[in-house]
Design a protein around this nucleic acid. Structure first.
Lengths: 209, 209
DNA sequence: GAACTCTTGGACCGGATGGTCCAATATTGT
DNA sequence: ACAATATTGGACCATCCGGTCCAAGAGTTC
């Protein structure tokens, strides 16, 4: 990892590299982005890349993953923190949709990353999977609170439901990337929320948007 | 495309290449699989690769996509053909789950392919997206038949529901690849079917598995 | 069996890529 | 001011990779 201490200038350069590299990787994937591309896109030199990321491309990719994770978690606030009312889930849905609609390129920076890394850099992939689990954990925690609060039936399985909702998010984003439209994510989230509502106690009404 | 006519021996060699290359790409991705890997994995020579795939790697990748598409569509039969009863959907779910559980590696050969190609080979990506749309079209057609048969409410939107179900499939497979477990796909499919049932006319009962 | 086509082997090439290294310059701390 | 450390530029390298080419072998057709 980065062993040497960073001055303010150094930290700024590092941030510039990560941010630009994140955009490149989002647009063209890890394999499609060379370190020379990053160098050209940040007006830096080869030595700087390896100065701030001694581990080379792998370490840079991990830094990108961390940045993207931070961004997407941030975009889901304040809803993600609680997610213990139906209104929270609706707000969460809208926030997520708005975030990805505003993104310069389609697709999920984390999902595509992990899908590519699994086959080429298992060690890095494992770290990124950890991030995915952290994200998914927030959804599960919210569902646990919903169940404890009586908004879900006692026999509802938060772990399983969170997995399903998260799959809808990732799948929606994959299709969003493939079809170059936000529609798939929107449809996927609606269906996921519908499925959640189906786990509410009897008598609970839900109008699909 | 392949211009010269193929003898039986030639066709066999071509098939062997595509089949082995499909496994390699599934395991390590397009970027992680070199033509030399394919050559070594099929006991062929460089010239054969370019003899049967004059378009080079792109053309080989397209052939792989076609093969994988054929396989996955086949695995969903006979349910995919109709999908006009709830029993069909249950059967479809089980068939899909069984297919991917039996696969030598986790993940969707088509989904990961398209997510990787979008950034590096847009032309090939477009073709593969066409395959995805064909698959999704079958789901939509089934939902249209369900609606026409009164098993879905008249105001249900088959296009939108198909998108959501398909997103669950792809997202489930992405997580299946990341977490190296079939659970995510199972949970995603269950939730997707639950959401479908929510579009059934009033009075319709559905017991979540 | 001869002419033709399909198939196969493998050497070779040019360019891209990840990574190393060293020297020069700026910054920091005392 | 001066030493130590952080930052920067860029030449250089070994390797990998997609792709080309030619010549020899196998199979088909008449």
């Amino acid at each position: 990892m980065t062993a040497t201490r960073l001055t303010a200038k150094g930290a700024a350069t590092r941030d510039r590299i990560v941010s630009a590299a994140a955009d490149l990787v989002l647009a063209r994937g890890v394999g499609g982005t060379s370190l020379d591309d990053v160098r050209a896109g940040t007006l830096t030199s080869k030595s700087q890349l390896f100065h701030y990321f001694p581990g080379g491309k792998s370490e840079l990719v991990l830094a990108i993953a961390e940045l993207q994770m931070q961004r997407v978690l941030q975009a889901q606030q304040p809803y993600l923190r609680t997610l213990d009312t139906w209104a929270d889930w609706d707000g969460w849905r809208d926030a997520l949709l708005a975030h990805y609609a505003a993104q310069p390129h389609w697709g999920c920076p984390i999902g595509t990353l992990v899908s590519e890394l699994v086959g080429t850099d298992p060690a890095a992939a494992a770290t990124v999977v950890g991030h995915l689990n952290r994200w998914r954990g927030h959804l599960r925690d919210g569902l646990v609170r919903m169940r404890d609060g009586g908004l879900l039936r006692p026999d509802a399985d938060p772990e399983c439901l969170a997995l399903a909702v998260f799959a809808s998010v990732q799948g929606g984003l994959l299709l969003t990337q493939a079809l170059r439209s936000i529609e798939p994510l929107s449809a996927a989230l609606d269906a996921a929320l519908t499925a959640l509502h189906a786990a509410a106690p009897d008598g609970h009404a839900y109008a699909t948007r």
